[in-house]
Amino acid sequence: MTDQPTTESKGQDGPAVVADGLTKVYDGFVAVDHLDLTIERGEVFGIVGPNGAGKTTTILMLLGLTEPTDGSARVLGMDPARDSLRIKSRVGYLPDEVGFYDDLSARANLRYAAELNRVPKAEIDSRMDQLLESVGLSGTADKRVSEFSRGMRQRLGVAEALIKNPEVLILDEPTVNIDPEGVRELLDLVQRLRSESGITVVLASHLLHQVEQVCDRLGIFVSGRMAAVGTVAELAAGIEKGHTFEVEVAARAIDAVTLMELVPGVRSATLDGERIVVTADRDVRPEIVELLADNGLGLLGLSTSTVDLDSIYHTYFTGAVNHDNVNA
């Protein structure tokens, strides 16, 4: 990746990926449900969602490996149903739990990928050396893959996906089952790729914490639907439309819970250890203070709950948020 084909030099206009009402039904089970999605060229896009949310099925449809039941998609301006081969020659894909020919060396595995992608014979060796170097496997490339750790296998998988010099790189659960150091190396690699070659990266993962660091935008996938799309900040803003407060009182908290529920606008008040978590439609802090004072309960603390990744994850994955409020 020494040359820098920028996003512009890669040619065509238009988004890298567009899905329009994409739907897949397997034996009556709806894996992907009318998905609309746009991924711009040069961005790192995270498809985040719990296992079974339809992430992999979506990827397979984008590559033309499985036919959509309904809807359509365009990848680099091409229709996966008709131009699957052309798409596959320009999109690198690292499948979930990628496998290798374990009896062969890393180099032999990589060479097969190069040949399948019709990399010119004269270029294969130099390109392999370059990629092995950039994923940090130069020293072990002649070992059998069966001796590789999970982290090394994952990086070899990235090298294989990159051998075709793709315009789009799709990584399916790349950080699963590898140690924290391996995760860091992999995410560094993604970041480096993006800044050096302007490649579009699609990261599918259920580990929001990990992929959030490198993604420009995230799409939250729940039960085959896109629950929300946006940057981390935008997603957090979507949640703040509802108000959450934490209240600490100088009395038996359980008594206070009953009182809070009387305040108009409060949706729920629950006990979380010593604190009371209150969710409401609006800012009810003045009423709470007043109410506590009227009832002679001392107020120790009142804070607005911070929206962090966990609450994004929790809120969206449990589907408790109003989807329409989120910037798409």
Binding site: L63, R86, Y93, P95, E97, V98, G99, R118, E160
Partner: peptide
């Protein structure tokens, strides 16, 4: 079983 099939079908071959 080696999980190489998804990768293989994702290459530009029929």
């Amino acid at each position: 079983s080696q999980r190489t099939l998804p990768k293989l079908v994702a290459q530009p071959i029929y």
